[in-house]
Design a protein around this nucleic acid. Structure first.
Length: 911
RNA sequence: GGGCGCAUAGCUCAGCUGGUUUAGAGCGCCUGCCUUACAAGCAGGAUGUCGGAGGUUCGAAUCCUUCUGUGCCCACCA
């Protein structure tokens, strides 16, 4: 059979993915094996695959595939998040395009549209994950708004309400005028923007010639002003305190009061108090029992309380009032000003502080639990440094109660019912229950009215924050609130892989919910044994950024098309590219800055290209192996050496990899395997065993080679699943079910560092011979004679079985002998401490050689001197550990031996 | 304003508890090769006052202080 010289991923990748699905290798059911569980951070159901997902899911896939190869019961649960605001906005927009207004249809009709949309397009991102090779158990695919998960939300809401930790309150909340809903503090993103400070003059009610000038960013809210505040120590305004001024344009009188909140030196030192539209103003208003005048509608337009500009949007109102103020003479000046303005995380609309009635979850006890979970080590962060950020957010001073209600339809409806007839705000007429019947029972009991029916009750219109369902994910994906069988096996999950940007939204809250409910669900005994944490480890990935270090996002349009990358480089190539620059927690610059020398964009696709090339390299190694004829001759000594060396290098690498996996140093692990395969296996091993052209290979060597490559395919499989599976099957005939994806991860065997070092030394000889060829312009095919100075150390090297024939083969030598006497007309080099000579036919340039050797000599003299300084220092010899001193002595001896050899060589040159 | 992190080769980054050489990788760069596995390749090479200045130590890229530059998180200055 003949294989193409190029590896082409397209067909191969889809073929094997389908095969894996057909054989149900990704499915997991509880059994007596050790479980290894990961729950996916559910992408938004509206989402399309972007670079962040690729990174994130590649890492999860590596961990899960490695666990599977190690014989664990690997379970990776996929799913999507209903993403309240984002999805609702999307559906609203879609309906609008069809000429349907949300306000014109019923809640039920709207939800039907939304579910239809979800059914049609919602699974897209999961299909894209399959292209990447994600080995999720697709039978377990969950969605945060399916029935079981919604029930869990209701259940936990009711539970927390019973525990007195959910309450309703009228508060200043962040209002998104576009989505027309409240937001939690975490959903508000502050951005620095250019703004203007309007200096506006308010005249005294009883003396229009006198007045006070205030500074504000929001002149459109003056109609909601209820006071002016100045600092009590401010002499400029002391005479005005207690008097009344008129609001420009509407001429309503408001008092001037003194409060220490006001900064003397900011703006004019006089602050307008607008309790309805500013958090601080609200607090000041509370202190002085001032009226709250709300002049904004829920969509950000001015209402009739504003008296003027009614119906105008707040921003156009700002422009128009500027003109009005200017005309009335109240506008003193406008100063440019940079300030931070809050935007909605989902809609990007400028957030309004607004006084609304919302549901809150008390966070202090939760935060304490979440802090303890990490500080105690129950949950480990990788990298650890994220503890700082976590701690600063969750400490008592910073944590705020969580506003969990949203004025949306797409989500789990708040399980609270009110009496139709009674005031909506009356606490005693709120019934929180898992369903309407229970609420009715409560209502009857609380009111003492047996005659009440369902029709007398009305359910809260709002839904809960999306994160109020996501925080249950590690439990709810196993239907843990309904039936604990699966939970008892899979919980706690082993590791969570996610970006640090949702540490607060999600990671911390999952920890909270885990400790809140899992002990009860698992039972005290099991919970004590396994722990209540939802995951034992958290691997925080960095953000994928563009060359301006901006987060990649759809709105900025700076994210490359993930699927296009896969088309260009293959999933394996892209996985390689994503990973090779992704140490845990470190941001990845996808489009790096221009390289000033080449003026080329050094971007990630360069790394993907490297990954693709690696696939091709492996493919060609396979072609080489498969192309050989076979003989039953005994293997050459160089082949025996090669096999022994490669076996040991493999074992050595396996030992190194273990440590890297434990610390999640995955990019380092991949690089290690890459070098093992490319450098050790392809560049050295295969060349060592390669028969002369047209000659057959010994059966025993070939068998060993296939075995080695096979094991290396398993080791590489978690990183690059497709190419390894393909090569696995090409290497030899396989029985049904003998697939790389479920092969056995090799156990690290013994290796002898001394032996490996000897082979390294022999390789150095070869490299030096090649370098000599390069320097002297000698062609590879011209045979050379090489001599080694006859010393005990040289004999020790030469007598390792196979070393001589290996050097002869790899260096393309005519002979390799001990130097009986001085070798005239030769180039000398050191390999370790041993001196070698390459005999040349051409005249050598002695001066050149002297310079080269002298340079080397200078280096070692400097080196020995620095070591000698240490060893001559009595405090070092007495103070440092014995093994360190011993090492230094060895370094010294080696260095001195090299110096002697070089000096001799120089003498010979000179003589 | 408070806090966290980073600064190592042209670029992107490793360097885990101070002590295997006088610091590594990949890409890029330079030289020579279309050597029948692979030019998506082969062989070889060059490249750094480890941001600056102090300090601790027998020993510092690694620990401490400080400065400079840079990134991020949090916070109610209109």
């Amino acid at each position: 059979m003949s294989l193409s010289t190029r590896y082409s991923p397209q067909d191969i990748e889809s073929k094997w993915y389908q095969h894996w699905l057909d054989r149900e290798y990704f499915n997991s059911e509880p059994d007596d094996r050790e479980p290894f569980t990961i729950v996916i951070p559910p992408p938004n159901v509206t989402g399309v695959l972007h670079m962040g997902h690729m990174l994130n899911n590649t890492i999860q896939d590596i961990l899960i595939r490695k666990a599977r190869l190690e014989g664990k019961n690997a379970c990776w649960v996929p799913g999507t998040d209903h993403a309240s605001i984002a999805t609702e906005a999307k559906v609203v927009k879609l309906l609008r395009e069809q000429g349907i207004k949300k306000s014109d249809i019923s809640r039920e009709a709207f939800l039907q549209h939304a579910f239809d949309w979800k059914e049609k397009y919602g699974g897209l991102i999961l299909e894209q994950l399959q292209k990447l090779g994600a080995s999720c158990d697709w039978h377990r695919t969950r969605f945060t708004m399916e029935s079981s998960l919604s029930k869990a939300v209701t259940h936990t809401f009711v539970d927390l309400h019973k525990k007195g930790r959910i309450y309703r309150s009228l508060r200043m909340t962040n209002w998104d005028p576009e989505a027309k809903t409240a937001l939690s503090n975490e959903e508000v993103i502050y951005k620095e923007e250019n703004s203007q400070l309007f200096h506006i003059r308010y005249v005294l009610e009883d003396d229009p010639t006198q007045g006070i000038v205030i500074a504000t960013q929001r002149p459109e809210t003056i109609m909601a002003d209820v006071a002016i505040a100045v600092h009590p120590d401010d002499e400029r305004y002391a005479h005005l305190v207690g008097k009344k001024v008129l609001i420009p344009l509407i001429n309503r009188a408001i008092p001037i009061l003194a409060d220490t909140y006001v900064e003397l030196d900011f703006g004019t030192g006089a602050l307008k108090i607008t309790p309805a539209h500013d958090q601080n103003d609200y607090e000041i208003g509370q202190r002085y029992q001032l009226e709250v005048i709300d002049i904004l509608n829920d969509d950000g337009t001015l209402n009739d309380k504003a008296q003027i500009l009614v119906g105008e949007d707040r921003f156009s109102a700002r422009k128009k009032i500027r003109k009005l103020l200017d005309e009335s003479g109240a506008l003193v000046k406008i100063v440019d000003y940079i300030t931070k303005i809050g935007h909605s995380e989902r809609t990007n609309a400028v957030v309004e502080p607004r006084l609304t009635l919302q549901w809150f979850l008390e966070m202090k006890p939760f935060a304490a639990t979440a802090l303890k979970a990490v500080s105690s080590g129950d949950v480990q962060f990788y990298p650890e440094s994220f503890w700082n950020m976590y701690h600063s957010w969750l400490n008592e001073d910073n944590v705020r109660d969580w506003c969990i209600s949203r004025q949306l339809w797409w989500g789990q409806r708040i399980p609270a019912w009110y009496l139709q007839s009674e005031s909506f705000n009356e606490e005693s007429h709120i019934f929180v229950a898992e369903n309407a019947d229970e609420a009715l029972a409560q209502a009857k009991e609380k009111t003492g009215n047996d005659q009440l029916t369902i029709e007398d009750l009305r359910q809260d219109d709002d839904v809960v924050d999306t994160w109020f369902s996501s925080w249950l994910w590690p439990i709810s994906v196993f239907d843990g609130f309904e039936n604990q069988d699966a939970l008892k096996y899979y919980y706690p999950t082993n590791v969570l892989v996610t970006g640090w940007d949702i540490m607060f939204f999600w990671v911390a809250r999952m920890i909270m919910s885990g400790y809140e409910w899992s002990p009860e669900l698992l039972g005290p005994k099991l919970s004590a044994k396994k722990g209540a944490m939802p995951f034992r480890k958290v691997y925080f990935t960095g953000m994928v950024r563009d060359n301006k270090r901006r987060k990649m996002s759809k709105s900025l349009g700076n994210s490359p098309d993930a699927l296009e990358l896969i088309d260009n480089y293959g999933a394996d190539g892209v996985r390689f590219g994503m990973l090779s620059s992704a140490a845990a927690g470190n941001d990845i610059i996808f489009d790096a800055p221009l390289d000033p020398v080449t003026n080329e964009v050094m971007n990630q696709s360069k790394l993907c290209e490297q990954g693709r090339n690696f696939c091709n390299k492996l493919w060609n190694a396979l072609r080489l192996i498969k192309g050989w004829e076979i003989t039953d001759n005994e293997p050459e000594s160089s082949s025996r050496l090669a096999v022994e060396w490669m076996e040991q290098r493999l074992n050595q690498t396996l030992a190194q990899l273990e440590g890297m996996f434990i610390d999640f140093r995955l990019s380092e692990a991949l690089m290690t395997v890459y070098k093992l395969l490319w450098d050790d296996f392809c560049s050295w091993y295969l060349e060592m065993i390669k028969p002369a052209y047209g000659e057959p290979i010994e059966r025993a060597t070939l068998e060993k080679t296939i075995g080695l490559m096979e094991r290396m395919m398993t080791i590489l499989h978690p990183f690059m699943p497709f190419v390894t599976e393909e090569i696995w099957h090409q290497l030899r005939e396989r029985a049904q079910g003998d697939d790389c994806v479920i092969s056995k991860y090799p156990k690290a065997g013994a290796f002898n560092e001394h032996f490996i070092a000897k082979v390294e030394q022999a390789k150095t000889v070869v490299t030096n011979v090649r370098e000599t060829r390069n320097n002297k312009g000698i062609k590879m095919k011209d045979l050379l004679s090489v001599y080694v100075q006859d010393t005990p150390a040289a004999r020790e090297l030469m007598e390792v079985d196979g070393v001589q024939s290996m050097i002869i083969k790899m260096g393309n030598l005519e002979s390799l002998e001990y130097a009986a006497a001085e070798i005239p007309n030769s180039v000398a080099f050191l390999a370790g401490t041993e001196k070698f000579f390459v005999a040349l036919e051409q005249k050598i340039n002695k001066e050149e050689e002297v310079v080269r050797l002298q340079k080397e000599l200078d280096y070692f003299r400097g080196f020995v001197k620095s070591v000698a300084n240490k060893l001559n220092n009595e405090r070092f010899v007495s103070g440092a550990p014995a093994d360190v001193v011993e090492k230094e002595k060895q370094k010294m001896a080696d260095g001195e031996a090299k110096i002697r050899s070089l000096e001799e060589a120089l003498e010979e040159m000179g003589g």
